[in-house]
Design a protein around this nucleic acid. Structure first.
Lengths: 224, 224
DNA sequence: TAGATTGTTAATCGATTAACAATC
DNA sequence: TAGATTGTTAATCGATTAACAATC
C-alpha cells in the first residue's frame, strides 16, 4: 500500500486520535454533572474512576489539548468544563437544519439537550404534503424543495438527515451544495461526501446487532 | 506460550475483542447487499475494500469465529452471511418490549429493518394517559404500570428504553426484575444493571458533540 | 514545608498489517 | 496444473498504563 493511502486510512483528524475524541463527550457530561453539584475540584484519579478508565489516560487525553490542572491539586471543575466545552464547540450557537420530519426527526427536533448546548435546529424540511406545514417545537415544517433557497439566505453549519435510506444521499448532496460543513446522518446508509465535509453516522441498527451478539455470548458463558 | 494456550486465555478473559464485534454489523450489511445483488463469491480483498479496512483484518476477524472461506476461491456470500447472521442472532425471533412511546419510541417501533431481521417489538408501554391506548404500528400502547404483569406472562429478551433520562433507571430496574437479559438504552444516562444483563447505549448526543469537534478541527485546518 | 497530583516520558499491551505456507 | 486466496504466524504500529520528576 502506498504511504499516502495508508495515511488516509489512519483514524485521526489533525493529530487527535479518534479514540480520544470519542471520550471527550463523556468527560463533558461528567464535568457538567459535577458542576451542577457544585463540586469545585477533581483529580485525574476520581475522574478516571467515574469514566471507568485509567488515571494516566485522563491526564494523557487532556494533555493533548493543553495543561488544565495543577500539581498537588487536580483540576478545577468549572475551568476544565469550560475548556472542554470550547474544544467541543458547546455553547457557541451552531446552526442546523433537519431534513425528514418523521418520528425520528421530530424526536431530534424536540430534544432540549441540544438546544441548551447551543446546537439550534433552525428549520425543518420534509417531502410529505401531509407533514409540510405542521408545527414541530415551534417550527413550521417546510417543503424540502425549498431547502436550497433556504440555505442560500440562511446558511447552516450542520445538516441532520432523518429521511429513509433511499433519500439520504440526494439530500446529503444538496446540503453539501448549499454549504453545510457537517452532516449528522441517521439514515442507515454510507454517505459519499467531499473530503472537507464531516459526517457523523448514528448507527442505530448496528447497535441492536451488537446487543444481540453480546446476549448470545453471555448465554453461552452462563450455560457452560 | 503456545498459540492455542494464548487463544484460549484471551477467549476466557475477554471473549471476542470489542473492536471486532463492532465490525460484525458492517460485514452483515455488506453481505446482505451482495446477496440481494445475487453475488456468489467475494474475496477478503474485495470485502475489505468495501469496509475500508485491510484484507488481513477481514480474514483475522472471521477466523475468530471459524473457517468460512476456501483458498483460491474466497468466501461464498450466502454461506458467510448465514454464519454471520447466526453469530449476531439475526433471524431468530428475539422478543422485545419498548418503554416510552414518544417520538423516538415510535420511530423505533416503526423501523421495519429490525422486524425483518427477527427483532420483534411485542409490546409498547408509556406513562402518559394521552399516549396509552393509542396505536403504533398495529400495537396498542399499554400503561407502564402493567409492564411487570405483562413480562410475567410474556417474557422478553430485550427491553428498549426510550423514556426521558430521569425515568430510565427505574424502568431498567423493572425490566431486569422481570427477566429481561438485554437493555437497549436511548436515554442519555449511564444505567446500573446486574453483571449478567447486557446494556447497549445509543449515544445520540455524544455523536453530535463528536461531529461538532470535527467541524472545528477542519475549520482550523482549512484556515491555517 | 510535606503530601498530593500533575504533565510527560518510558514500558507494556493489544490491535492492525504483512508475510507466507497450505491448498483449492 | 498454475494462479488465486485462505488461515495463521510474525512484524509493526498505536493506544493504554506505569513511572517519576516537577511543582503546587
Amino acid at each position: 500500500m502506498s504511504p499516502e493511502k495508508r495515511k488516509m486510512q489512519r483514524n485521526r483528524q489533525n493529530g487527535i486520535p479518534l479514540t480520544v475524541v470519542k471520550r471527550l463527550p463523556g468527560y463533558q457530561r461528567l464535568l457538567s454533572e459535577l458542576a451542577n453539584k457544585e463540586v469545585e475540584r477533581i483529580s485525574s484519579r476520581e475522574l478516571a474512576a467515574k469514566m471507568k478508565i485509567n488515571p494516566s489516560q485522563v491526564r494523557q487525553d487532556l494533555s493533548l489539548f493543553g495543561t488544565f490542572g495543577q500539581q498537588g491539586y487536580g483540576y478545577r471543575v468549572s475551568y476544565l468544563l469550560g475548556e472542554i466545552n470550547k474544544i467541543l464547540g458547546i455553547n457557541t450557537h451552531t446552526r442546523m437544519v433537519l431534513v425528514g420530519a418523521g418520528h425520528l426527526g421530530r424526536a431530534i427536533a424536540n430534544y432540549e439537550n441540544f438546544t441548551k448546548r447551543g446546537f439550534i435546529i433552525e428549520a425543518l424540511f420534509d417531502q410529505d404534503p401531509q407533514v409540510i406545514g405542521s408545527t414541530v417545537n415551534n417550527l413550521i415544517v417546510k417543503d424540502v424543495r425549498e431547502l436550497g433557497a433556504y440555505l442560500a439566505t440562511a446558511p447552516a453549519e450542520i445538516g441532520v438527515i432523518c429521511t429513509p435510506a433511499a433519500a439520504a444521499q440526494e439530500i446529503a448532496d444538496q446540503l453539501v451544495r448549499y454549504g453545510v460543513k457537517g452532516i449528522w446522518n441517521f439514515a442507515p446508509v454510507a454517505l459519499k461526501v467531499p473530503e472537507e465535509v464531516c459526517v457523523e453516522h448514528v448507527h442505530i441498527g448496528e447497535s441492536l446487532m451488537i446487543l444481540s451478539f453480546q446476549l448470545r455470548q453471555k448465554e453461552k458463558k452462563f450455560k457452560r
